[in-house]
Design a protein around this nucleic acid. Structure first.
Length: 607
RNA sequence: GGCCCCGUCGUCUAGCCAGGUUAGGACACGGCCCUUUCAAGGCCGGAGCACGGGUUCAAAUCCCGUCGGGGUCACCA
């Protein structure tokens, strides 16, 4: 028995939900045995016994029994993510997967991965790997599906043809589907005619075969049949969406959709419904674009005598700064968005530092691969995605995996599309990165140095280079925002004669100021006298301060010159820490190299 | 165009059901401070209820309408 209490008379706490009636209703279905808070307008009363179902109408409680065809709600929750193998994992797809995963896991249920490959049989393995990799990287593990198997396999639609065939037969036998012999041209003509007359078009069933004899007659004309759904002509399809509430669609606005082609292959809607049934899916949580597909799927399910699952249609993820659906094909256009551009270019810089070619097909912030490639933390991406269309309250933003599982509910999914905000994603990443302890950061960063060929592979913590990496990471601090950012400090791992000088910075700090060479020479002499064990940032700082005071110059007159001389660039972390990491010998080597270069440059410009 | 869905700062959102808030938070943005560069940090700030009616003492919140945006209308998934 589920007890409903007034929210006004009881303080808010964990077991209560502050909800709209439609959402309360949804929750009541989803959380057997839990207390659900409802409006004081509803008198506290008892909910119908579990296994029956009830509705909570806006102002009163009206218990009614569910239709027999509905899914019994006391069984284990099973959700699924059903991507088609396209070769990449879209950021919106991941969010759908995340919500499915969270819902199943938070309800003690199971999360199933199914591959919807009814149409593309080619190269499935290659197109599938990036998807599996992406999900695994994010820790969205599936209880059943490719590679892990399960009792309801196979988990590829291309391998479940017999099941679909049986279903088509049944639909045919029950009069819920029919053989249709129209040619595409005839259909097009009908459609055009209707359009010309300004009518909305619905197939006339002109070539529907009424019986065997008619089939033979059509076939004698050389026609080949497809199987179409025999959608009701009147009335409407009503269903309850866990996010949107009640949805009503007139049957007249539906078509007699094709469910099987002449060659026997079946179409998505049929396959999807059949699989959801055989895989015991209790909750179909998917993108909003499927909302209008739902009536036909309900029709199929009911015609086959399947229980109808619960539906939840997630708002889609929109483009940065707009309400259009985020698309992987519009990369060029998104690059006009400053924040998106920044994110992308940061990624490109890292790829270039790695000496890797940027494949525009895969390297795109719309796909998860991008984030993995440049060293994002999966938990940061997940946290950001969670908040894209869902919130707990007016202030909580950070969720560990446990907290997500604890707090997630479909009832608090926002209805409107949420646009993807690269800046906010970056902010989450930075926050998560800052909190990582030093050794963990080092582990994340080392592979990037290895891939760039800057440190050997393998590289263990005993190796002195590991210590150097550790020092760099420590001193760089929050400047390393994604793991790949370590490559901004490549000069720390390159030879004294090899690391490159930025022409611009070199000129600005070493060639142009008339006193630069002289000061740098003098400072180098001072450094030379410093014993190697005193080559520490505190001592170095003191040394430079004395140097500056004695000569009555400004700090800026020497420090930038030293930085450019030893790192090749004008920006970096603390100057004295930089020298400490380089050590006495390297520091002097680099300054000498810079001095020589600067001399040459000045002589060249003088003559 | 038909059908369906949606509409609170630039963005993500809280608040809407049970009408009374200086409409709250976060990211981004601007200014100031700190500073050897770049980050980070500290302080301060600007910024929103799509519009129009109605109900009401009182409307982001309830009702009606308008407008706007999007999704979908395949022998794709």
């Amino acid at each position: 028995m589920l007890r409903l209490v007034s929210l006004h008379t009881a303080p808010r706490h964990e077991s209560e939900y502050h909800l709209t009636p439609s959402r309360a209703r949804a929750q009541a279905f989803l959380l057997p045995g839990k207390v659900v808070g409802i409006s004081s307008a509803c008198r506290p009363t008892h909910f119908p016994p579990w296994g029956q179902r009830g509705y909570l109408a806006p102002r009163e409680l009206v218990p009614i029994c569910c239709k027999d065809s509905s899914m019994a709600s006391n069984q284990t929750v099973r959700t699924r993510f059903a991507p088609s193998p396209t070769g990449y994992l879209h950021i919106g797809g991941v969010r759908t997967a995340l919500f499915n995963w969270l819902f199943a896991k938070s309800q003690g249920g199971r999360f199933i991965l199914r591959i919807d490959d009814t149409d593309q049989e080619r190269h499935v393995a290659e197109s599938l790997d990036p998807i599996l990799e992406g999900l695994r990287w994010l820790g969205l593990d599936w209880d059943e599906g490719p590679e892990v198997g399960g009792p309801h396999g196979p988990y590829f639609q291309s391998q479940r043809q017999e099941l679909y065939q049986q279903a088509v037969q049944q639909l045919l036998e029950r009069g819920a589907a029919y053989y249709d012999y129209a040619t595409p041209e005839e259909l097009a003509q009908e459609r055009q005619q209707a359009q010309a007359q300004g009518r909305s078009w619905r197939y006339s069933r002109r070539w529907m075969a009424q019986d065997e004899e008619e089939r033979r007659r059509f076939e004698a004309q050389g026609r080949r049949p497809v199987v179409r759904l025999k959608i009701p002509q009147e009335g409407s399809c009503e269903f309850e969406d866990l996010i949107r509430g009640r949805v009503e669609v007139p049957w007249a606005s539906e078509q007699d959709h094709v469910i099987q082609r002449a060659d026997g292959s079946v179409l998505y809607h049929l396959a999807s419904v059949v699989d959801d049934y055989h895989m015991g899916i209790t909750h179909v949580i998917r993108a909003q674009e499927h909302l209008s597909n739902t009536p036909r799927q309900i029709f199929i399910a009911q015609s086959l005598g399947y229980p109808v699952p619960q539906w939840a249609h997630l708002p889609y993820v929109a483009e940065p700064g707009s309400r259009n659906k985020l698309s992987k094909r519009k990369l060029k256009q998104y690059l006009n968005h400053p924040e998106f551009r920044k994110l992308y270019q940061g990624g490109v810089r890292i790829m270039e530092a790695l000496g890797r070619e940027v494949d525009p097909e895969r390297f795109n912030p719309v796909m998860v691969h991008f984030y993995r490639a440049i060293g994002y933390l999966p938990e940061a991406l997940l946290n950001y995605l969670l908040l894209l269309g869902w919130s707990l309250d007016d202030h909580t933003e950070e969720f560990s995996r446990q907290e997500m599982l604890k707090h997630f509910s479909l009832a608090r999914v926002h209805k409107a599309p949420a646009s993807f905000d690269p800046a906010k994603l970056a902010a989450f990443q930075h926050r998560y990165m800052q909190r990582l302890d030093l050794d963990r950061k080092v582990q994340l960063v080392v592979p990037y140095l290895q891939q760039a060929g800057l440190v050997p592979s393998p590289l263990g913590p005993q190796n002195p280079l590991w210590k150097r990496v550790r020092q760099v990471v420590q001193f760089a601090g929050d400047r390393i925002k994604v793991a790949g950012d370590i490559l901004e400090f490549a000069y720390m791992f390159q030879g004294d004669e090899q690391f490159p000088y930025s022409e611009k910075d070199f000129h600005k700090r070493l060639v142009k100021p008339p006193e630069a060479v002289e000061l740098l020479t003098q400072f180098a002499q001072l450094l030379e006298q410093l014993p190697p064990e005193k080559f520490q940032h505190q001592q170095l700082q003191q040394l430079m301060q004395e140097f500056v005071q004695q000569r009555g110059i400004k700090l800026g007159q020497i420090i930038h010159a030293v930085r450019v001389a030893t790192t090749g660039q004008g920006v970096g972390f603390g100057m004295f820490e930089t020298l400490e990491v380089l050590g006495k010998q390297s520091t002097l080597n680099r300054i000498r190299r810079a001095l020589a270069l600067a001399q040459t440059a000045r002589e060249a410009s003088a003559s």
